[in-house]
């Protein structure tokens, strides 16, 4: 009896401490939560779940992005202290002829890649939509390159571009009696040669998205047009394509960003001389990689990423503005 009483007296401050530090805040929160309206409770739960990815993005994405902007105003080689450089990295960039070559290359990837890939993908999707026989198999065939790693694909395509007797393309040209082409060895042909597998790799995804867009157009639109007797071309231009506009906007922006950020295809197809020959295939991302991890000029590389960021932003905004429904 006596011992129990004593124990209770000793325990009381300890339980009180637990109550004060853990129990009381929980009790306070619960009583606050209970007095909220249904709408407010929903907001509390939404933010509870949103906080995890939000925290993740702030730490993993937003902070490094902001840091890159900061870094672009400094000189840093990873080991030394960061030195304030002001806008000098950007000035150096503007005066660098290699940068302008790379800048133009990047836009060539964009200006050739986006329209060509979209036209090919739309054509495939348009006809595939009308085919029932082996529809799934053909679709899977087009989607397969999208699942393949860029490294493996780039190496296979490198082999395609070899001279006779190894390269497939040159063998075909030889069979047809056409002169051998240098492909990756030529400063004028290398960029399109690198672009081709990049387009091919993204085609499956674009075809799938186009197919989904085509499927979403009600059949009765086409039937009404059939009764009105308009030509297939009119139906394509005046019904199908305008109704696919949301799909087209999405794919234009999405694939433009993809082509502006092209890296792995270029890097793997020109490993002996990345971005070569004579920088003729070098895109901005490859230049950033080279400056940062071969040159260890982190500030200069950060300045290049800032430029890439601005290019992506401006291109996307212009596209959205032009393509937006007026």
């Amino acid at each position: 009896m006596l011992a129990q009483d004593r124990n209770r007296q000793i325990d009381r401050p300890a339980t009180h401490r637990v109550w004060r530090t853990v129990g009381f805040p929980i009790w306070l929160y619960l009583s606050w939560y209970r007095s909220r309206t249904i709408r407010q409770k929903r907001v509390v739960w939404a933010w509870t779940f949103l906080s995890v990815p939000l925290l993740f993005y702030v730490v993993i994405r937003f902070y490094p992005t902001a840091d890159a902007f900061w870094l672009s105003l400094h000189d840093w080689n990873l080991l030394s202290d960061m030195e304030w450089a002001g806008m000098s990295n950007f000035g150096r960039l503007a005066a660098d002829p290699e940068f302008w070559q790379v800048f133009w290359n990047t836009f060539q990837y964009l200006l050739l890649g986006t329209p060509i890939s979209l036209v090919i993908a739309f054509t495939i999707a348009y006809y595939l939509d009308q085919v029932r026989f082996m529809h799934g198999f053909i679709r899977a065939l087009y989607f397969l390159p999208f699942l393949t790693t860029a490294v493996a694909m780039a190496w296979v395509w490198r082999w395609f571009y070899q001279p006779v007797p190894v390269g497939v393309f040159n063998n075909i040209l030889a069979e047809l009696g056409i002169a051998q082409q240098p492909f990756l060895r030529s400063t004028s042909q290398a960029l399109p040669s690198v672009l081709a597998p990049a387009i091919w790799a993204g085609l499956g995804f674009q075809v799938i998205i186009f197919l989904a867009g085509l499927r979403a157009i009600p059949q009765s639109y086409y039937e009404a047009a059939r009764i009105d007797g308009v030509s297939r071309l009119t139906i394509l231009w005046e019904i199908t394509i305008p109704l696919l506009k949301p799909t087209i906007v999405f794919l234009v922006v999405f694939s433009s960003i993809g082509f502006l950020r092209i890296f792995d295809h270029v890097f793997n197809m020109t490993t002996n001389d990345p971005g070569g020959p004579l920088n003729s295939t070098e895109p901005l991302v490859l230049m950033i990689y080279d400056t940062a991890f071969n040159g260890f000029q982190m500030g200069y590389a950060a300045a290049q990423t800032v430029v890439l960021f601005l290019v992506l932003l401006v291109v996307s905004l212009i596209q959205l503005r032009i393509l937006r429904d007026r």
Binding site: P218, E223, A224, I227, D228, G229, V230, E238, P242, L243
Partner: peptide, 29 residues
């Protein structure tokens, strides 16, 4: 062909084109 049957059809979901004005929709026929 439907266009040569001298018929016109009104569909359950109307089949009027969302990207065209009323004038253009009526004129499409």
């Amino acid at each position: 062909e439907p266009k040569d049957r001298n018929i016109a059809m009104v569909f359950q979901n109307y089949a009027i084109y969302p990207h065209m004005t009323v004038y253009k929709n009526i004129g499409f026929g």
